[in-house]
């Protein structure tokens, strides 16, 4: 029983990070129909930036964090939107899919070639000393991951519910043309969503880096989990991505512990395929109608 609880904390802790990447992913889909196949690399690049600013340039932690956030929102937010999305948006889903696949390869192999093919260590942000609550043992790191993710996601939800920007986002998500008629600057909103996504993935990067180490190819795994999370939870709802992220984290943790570590990736997938077959709109999504 204590095992189960301990693993629960661990699963939620990693799931919360997946959820952040998944939420950004869903936001991009909603406002610009971008399926970002580079979402994993959108997590990896900020992790590398953080290493650069913090351990190479030796900036103080807060300054390094700020620099990472700023540079990634500019690069992965503004630049990507201006160069790729702006032009491809009108052409349907597939060209953007291909372009983001290209972008993911570009980021991945550039990091490998120009920086290092090896894993970089990343200092732990929080202590890994065990904390005991009754029989259950977990770490401060796990706790803080959950806390941070909850804070960020909570703030985001609040912003989307309460601000004009959030309202505009919802309007665009529901009907892009109508939103344009209502006087919403869709292009600018898409840009803002890309920046928001980049900020989200940057935070996810900083939380995940101490767990996974920083390596050019860890994005593949993280990107996949974000996808799974978004689809399992529901592609058209932030709450869906949140639920999906937590579920993926939990399934992964439990199946690795109790069933087989070799197939740990397979169980999230099986859940994914099950959801697609039985409830394609996702566990907590809304059915979409066409025409």
């Amino acid at each position: 029983m204590t095992d189960v609880l301990q693993l629960f904390v661990a699963g939620v802790s990693i799931g919360a990070i997946y959820a952040m990447a998944a939420i950004g992913f869903v936001l991009l889909w909603q406002t610009s129909n971008t399926i970002n196949f580079a979402q994993g690399e959108f997590v990896v690049l900020p992790a590398f930036l953080m290493v650069l600013f913090w351990t190479v340039f030796r900036l103080p932690f807060a300054a390094a964090l700020l620099a990472t956030l700023v540079v990634s929102t500019l690069l992965l937010g503004l630049l990507v939107k201006a160069v790729l999305v702006e032009r491809l948006l009108k052409m349907g889903v597939l060209p953007l899919v291909i372009a983001t696949i290209g972008l993911s390869m570009l980021i991945r192999y550039s990091l490998q070639q120009f920086w290092t093919p090896l894993a970089l260590p990343f200092p732990a942000l929080f202590s890994r000393a065990p904390i005991r609550v009754g029989e259950v043992i977990f770490t401060r790191e796990e706790l803080m991951n959950v806390l941070f993710a909850a804070l960020v996601i909570g703030a985001l939800q609040l912003a989307i519910r309460r601000t004009k920007l959030g309202w505009a986002m919802q309007a665009v998500a529901q009907n892009r043309n109508l939103a344009a008629v209502l006087g919403i600057n869709v292009s600018r909103l898409v840009g803002l969503t890309f920046m928001l996504n980049a900020a989200l993935t940057a935070v996810a990067a900083i939380l995940v880096a101490p767990v996974y180490l920083v390596k050019y190819d860890i994005g593949i795994g993280i990107g996949l989990k974000a996808f799974y999370a978004a689809i399992i939870g529901g592609f058209n709802q932030i709450r869906g991505a949140l639920l999906g992220g937590l579920l993926v984290g939990l399934v992964e943790t439990y199946s690795a512990a109790y069933i087989s570590n070799q197939f740990r990736d397979a169980f999230a997938l099986i859940m994914l395929i099950g959801v697609l077959l039985l409830k394609p709109e996702g566990l907590w999504g809304i059915k979409e109608e066409w025409m």
């Binding site: 399926i35 996949l224 990736d265 397979a266």
Partner: peptide, 29 residues
């Protein structure tokens, strides 16, 4: 192809991608 019928193509990308990973895992194990 069956799930492909139910889902739109962004999902299909995911399902097939997942299938490839499963095949790879099975081949390896």
């Amino acid at each position: 192809g069956f799930p492909a019928l139910k889902v739109k193509h962004h999902y299909l990308a995911m399902v097939t991608l997942g299938f490839n990973i499963i095949v790879f895992l099975v081949l390896r194990n």
